[in-house]
Amino acid sequence: MDWFKRKQEGIFTTTKSAMPDGLWQKCENCGEVIFAKAIENSLATCEKCNFHFRTDAKGYINFWLDENSFEEFNQNLKSTDHLGFVDAKGSYKTKLTETIKKSGVNEAVRTGKGKISSREVIFVAMDFNFMAASMGSVVGEKISRAIDEATKLKIPLIVVCASGGARMHEGALSLMQMAKTSAKLARFSQKGGFYIAILTNPTTGGVSASFAMLGDIILAEPKALIGFAGPRVIKQTIGKDLPDGFQTSEFLLEHGFVDRIVHRKEMKNEIKTLIELLT
């Protein structure tokens, strides 16, 4: 593995809170101070406690796809402020421009064709760095086109899911992307397509109540927050503290909504084997 060659560019970007820049980094879970390269070598997980640092789409592309195999689709799709939405912090339009500049990506999802151990797949990864991976028109459209491509090419579809909630700035247009992506998946499934959904921290709201829960097989990274309603909302509604481990990957496995919990380092091999077994 030649992680080091690509070091300048960085093989992944964690969100600000996860890891400050520097040679040494502190694990936000166990507090262990670890050599940054060691974290990188273990695919942004802590070697001591197995904590999975939050990462972006670029990270997952580098972690799980064969080197240089990713051909990205529809990078030129950009959100528009159709509603002319203005909140306390200003307009959605300005927020989009600023977020594009800050995150280096045009939207909250990257889609394309790639290879996993030489097998062609359509690979989709949500980008938490872009407005908390909320789903608006562009996210819905890019994922829909990726599903169309998987349908046309008759190859497996892998979607790395993440989302912190709704893209409120697009109102009902954001909501309808749940129906749009689900409709495309229904068609893909009818034609015999194989879909693996991979749930990462956090997968909530509209994304969880659409394509995230529609995989033929649903895998999850350990200890991810997964649920329809956010824990804060539930706590407010019922006026009680939530039980320990509520809405974690492990909780979903126990209740029958996730097939397997897989360490980030094992995921590539896991996908490869599942594709071999089922297609």
């Binding site: 749940m178 129906a179 689900s182 409709a183 998946l185 229904a186 068609r187 499934s189 009818q190 969880s208 109540a209 659409s210 394509f211 995230a212 829960m213 529609l214 997964i226 649920g227 329809f228 309603a229 956010g230 909302v233 539930i234 509604t237 019922i238 939530l242 039980p243 509520f246 809405q247 909780f251 209740h255 029958g256 909504f257």
Partner: peptide, 26 residues
């Protein structure tokens, strides 16, 4: 809205809604 509660999450609110979108589409 769909009910945000402990039982609703335990019994898969997200899965139940997603499945309906998927089935109703076809």
């Amino acid at each position: 809205g769909a009910f945000p509660g402990i039982g609703a999450e335990e019994r898969g609110q997200a899965e139940a809604i997603a499945k309906n979108l998927f089935e109703m589409a076809v």
